[in-house]
């Protein structure tokens, strides 16, 4: 099985891989470090790596000034809400495509994916006006619906690929056992597809969390998630790097932590179910 690898070669690869890994990770690492510096030290040259006066003051200031918690709460609600909403309508669809396919199923799936090809700018103006006229601008319900629709094709696609791996006979067995469609989905398919659903859920939470076109265009304050919170730092006050870093760290930390703990699902999800 495993090939014998010379120790020397392994060491060289280790050094190389770690260097490149650190290089790629550096901007994030640097942001996290800067968030614990004073503003003075943040712009000091040559930069200090570990030996500076560590402080958490920036975090307190950022929270106080721009109410991080409100934005974070919105991010959580939007990401979770839109993903769960999409799952509820995607699971039956993916079930139908995987287990009761018709002649058109492949085309339908391709059409669904093609809606992702539609540039958002093509829909920006009308959606903005519709939102304005129906009082949906800056409401959570409105933006959740948009994010749901945005990620629905990807969710259906991913679930479809996962469902295809499940033997149809098991679902048929449940049908023989008298399960209705609802029960078949709830008690048999969904539990069996948990790993796939978890990956789908995770990836789409990330996509929704980081979505920065519609959230910037359609929210301002009440429903604004962390993308807006950060965008507000692009103004000159963003020049306070330590605070900018603290704000950035707070905006990305939840997803980084989530990704860390759910690495396996994440890796599986990131490949969109398209690569085994």
């Amino acid at each position: 099985m495993a090939r014998a690898v010379s120790k020397r070669r392994k060491l060289i690869v280790t050094v190389l891989a770690w260097s490149i890994g650190l290089l790629i990770f550096f901007p994030i690492l640097w942001t996290i470090l800067t968030s614990f510096k004073s503003e003075g030290e943040a712009i000091e040259l040559p930069p200090k790596f570990l030996f500076f006066a560590w402080t958490t003051e920036n975090y307190a200031v950022v929270q106080e000034r721009s109410n991080y918690l409100l934005f974070a709460m919105n991010s959580i609600l939007l990401a979770l809400g839109s993903t769960l909403f999409a799952l509820v309508i995607a699971i039956p669809s993916a079930w139908a495509m995987a287990f009761a396919p018709g002649k058109r199923t492949k085309d339908l799936l391709m059409w669904m994916l093609s809606t992702k090809m539609m540039p958002p700018v093509g829909a920006l103006i009308p959606l903005y006006l519709i939102f304005r006229d129906f009082g949906l601008l800056d409401t959570r319900g409105g933006i959740i619906t948009v994010l749901m629709l945005l990620n629905l094709p990807i969710i259906i696609w991913m679930l479809y690929t996962y469902f295809k791996e499940i033997p149809g006979e098991i679902l048929e067995a449940s049908r023989m056992d008298g399960a209705s469609l609802g029960k078949e989905l709830l008690y048999v398919l969904t539990p069996m597809a948990i790993p796939g659903i978890a990956s789908t859920l995770l990836l789409n939470i990330i996509l929704a969390w980081n979505e920065a076109f519609w959230t910037l265009a359609l929210t301002t304050k009440d429903a604004a998630p962390l993308t807006q919170f950060i965008a507000s730092y692009s103004s000159p006050e963003g020049l306070f790097w330590a605070k900018l870093s603290a704000a950035s760290t707070m905006a990305i930390a939840p997803i980084l932590v989530l990704g860390w703990f759910a690495q396996k699902q994440l890796v599986r999800g990131l490949t969109f179910g398209a690569v085994k």
């Binding site: 990770f25 640097w30 942001t31 962390l226 965008a231 950035s248 990305i252 997803i255 980084l256």
Partner: peptide, 15 residues
């Protein structure tokens, strides 16, 4: 290596 993909675009831009 995956981490940058998890960073929201607005943060990446500002950083």
């Amino acid at each position: 290596m995956i981490a940058p993909f998890l960073v929201m675009p607005t943060v990446s831009a500002l950083v």
